[in-house]
Design a binder for these strands. Structure first.
Length: 573
RNA sequence: CGGGAUGUGGCUCAGCCCGGUAGAGCACUGCGUUCGGGACGCAGGGGUCGGAGGUUCAAAUCCUCUCAUCCCGACCA
């Protein structure tokens, strides 16, 4: 591609909308433009990167035995009502109505559609296993879209669905996808982890997330420093080290109410009493479809809502507004405690071993001290309710866990028969018995993968694309358009690069050299070739790698070193 | 949905408190000079100040409503 002909509007200044680095660079590099909140146009450069990721995905999916399809973006409400998700999915489901007032949605995912398709097509175990995938635009009406392509509402996703005869076979399909994903993200040049994860709204029994490690990531990943254990903190557990519960001295005084004005946080309470936060407990009110409950965890821990939801067996869970807690329960948020409450109590497993603790008095401005588990309060529900912290013991090996931030780029789920049951998708097995299809689903955020690659590969001059997904592998800068020799050489090299199938951007613009250097750096081209009058006279072509900014001089009359340099670059990433 | 903020040429922003002629830089057009890390000079084009209503002789500026966007929390590829 000739730079002079390409629509590549690079920006010197950063539009104020951009917060994270990938978003800023994608705007500056002329890859994307925002149309509305969480909705972006892809410009030529952005689309090239996207297509490169898609191509890697297609190759690896096909290699893993999956077949590409394309499912409708707009889906009838009936299907979603049948699966039960029309009501369950909530406001993220963009519902639309046609001229006949029939309800539809813009697909946020395609389990319903694919299951519907398959239930009409698959009759026999002989047709299985089957894995179908698509690369498609989806829409989820996120509450707060942000970070450009990282969390858009409209986004491009590769989603695959597998169908098997039983759990064992489904496990093989799952493993095949796990391997394919590992190859995909490796080929994209990403530093990532496959971690155990919560299966969320999609449902199902088992799932792994593929997380690209980056400080700007929205997810936190706990991983063991010694063994292979890695999990999303939403899911992560730590090994529970049981200590004999300290029972109170039989003569210990009963709880004492102490006035603690303006102590609505654990920090404030701990400071007020001059104790460490782990000598206090944190009590929080949650509301779910099953009603209110109080969750009690050690003061230095954070409540993990997913664990709370699981412990309750609730469909949904939220933290009610303080005013609502006061109105409905008569309890003062900021001064809550587990004594004498009428709603169900959920106690974290660590609480019984804390010994003497301080907690809220359920009276605004007062806390209780000298409180003991078992004597002053108790509960039948004692489970793991806290988020793991760095330094907690690994659940597998007991070594230390570390916490990293990351970007979820892929997620694979074992769905089991959740959807086949709802939608009655069955087949006849070898004995002629009707059985439910066992499903799995596998997603990759394509745009997010590009964004994640940028988060992991940039410097002060712009993007440093991994070779595999770089929109252009080579930037050829002609610094002296007026020189016929220089231009002739550049033209011939440009032709040869193209004929060798190496995607190249030839900067033939009538611009000053500085502009060309800056643009080539900004758009992240792995290899920059520069030729000006001086270099031509010396018979050398300047080659500079984007990563590491290494300069090399290549002979003009022998192109072999260039081809080996390119081969080396391709192999490195 | 709660909390905070912002809407002024294509982009980044000043002007608003204290009402009176709409500004700068970048980008764009023309001419000239320049030419190995985002050049310079001269001359230009481009803005219903997010929208609606109100107060006022007079509103970008004050008031009300509304829309949009962004940032902080709970959901997700």
């Amino acid at each position: 591609m000739r730079f002079s002909r390409m629509h590549l509007p690079t920006l010197k200044e950063v539009p104020s909308e951009a917060e994270v680095i990938s978003h800023r660079l994608m705007l500056r590099a002329g890859m994307i433009r925002r149309l509305a909140a969480g909705i972006y146009s892809y410009l030529p450069l952005g689309l090239l990167a996207l297509r490169n990721v898609e191509e890697i995905i297609r190759q690896e999916m096909n290699r893993a035995g999956a077949q590409e399809v394309l499912l409708p973006a707009v889906q009838p409400a009936e299907l979603w009502q049948e699966s039960g998700r029309w009501d369950f999915y909530g406001k993220e489901l963009l519902r639309i109505r046609d001229r006949h007032q029939r309800d539809y949605c813009f697909g946020p995912t395609h389990e319903e559609v694919i299951t519907d398709l398959i239930r009409h097509e698959v009759r026999s175990y002989r047709q299985l296993p089957l894995n179908l995938y698509q690369v498609q635009t989806k829409f989820r009406d996120e509450i707060r879209p942000r970070f450009g392509l990282m969390r858009g509402r409209e986004f491009i996703m590769k989603d695959a669905y597998s169908f098997d005869i039983d759990d064992a076979a489904a496990g093989l399909s799952y493993q095949a996808m796990r391997d394919a994903y590992t190859r995909i993200f490796s080929r994209c040049g990403l530093n990532f982890r496959a971690v155990e994860a919560d299966s969320g709204a999609i449902g199902g029994s088992f799932s792994h997330e593929f997380v690209v490690l980056a400080d700007s990531g929205e997810d936190a990943v706990a991983s063991c420093q010694s063994c292979e254990y890695a999990a999303n903190v939403e899911k992560a557990e730590s090994r529970f080290i049981a200590v004999k519960a300290t029972s109170p001295d039989p003569d210990a005084a009963p709880p004492l109410e102490v006035a603690t004005p303006d102590c609505e946080s654990i920090e404030a309470v701990a400071a007020f009493f001059g104790v460490a936060p782990d000598k206090t407990v944190k009590s929080m009110i949650f509301e779910s479809d099953l009603g209110f409950c109080m969750v009690v965890v050690p003061g230095d821990c954070e409540v993990n809502e997913i664990k709370v939801k699981a412990a309750l067996g609730a469909e949904w869970l939220e933290i009610p507004a303080s005013a609502r807690v006061a109105d409905e329960l008569g309890l003062p948020v900021g001064y809550l405690g587990p004594l004498n409450v009428t709603i169900p109590l959920l106690i974290d497993r660590q609480v019984p071993q804390l010994g003497e603790i301080i907690c809220g008095a359920n009276r605004a401005g007062f806390h209780l001290k000298g409180v003991f588990w078992g004597r002053d309060f108790s509960s039948r529900q004692i489970v793991d309710l806290v988020q793991v912290k760095a330094g907690d013991p690994c659940p597998r090996c007991g070594s230390l866990l570390q916490i990293d931030r990351g970007i979820e780029v892929g997620h694979i789920f074992k769905l089991g028969t959740k959807y086949s049951e709802k939608l009655n998708a069955t087949f006849l097995d070898q004995e002629g018995k009707e059985r439910l299809l066992v499903m799995g689903c596998y997603g990759i955020g394509v745009g997010r993968t590009v964004a994640a690659a940028i988060e992991q590969n940039y410097d002060e001059n712009g993007i440093c694309f991994p070779y595999a997904i770089a929109p252009f592998k080579v930037a050829l800068l002609n610094l002296d358009l007026k020189s016929e020799e220089v231009t002739a050489y550049c033209e011939s090299l440009y032709q040869e690069l193209q004929s060798r199938g190496i995607s190249v951007i030839y900067d033939d613009r009538n611009e000053r050299p500085g502009v060309k250097f800056k643009d080539a750096d900004l758009i992240g081209v792995p290899l920059r070739l520069t030729l000006g009058r001086k270099g031509y006279k010396r018979g050398v072509l300047e080659a500079r790698r984007r990563k590491g900014s290494i300069n090399e001089e290549l002979p003009l009359d022998d192109r072999a070193p260039l081809w080996s340099l390119l081969a080396e670059l391709a192999a490195d990433d």
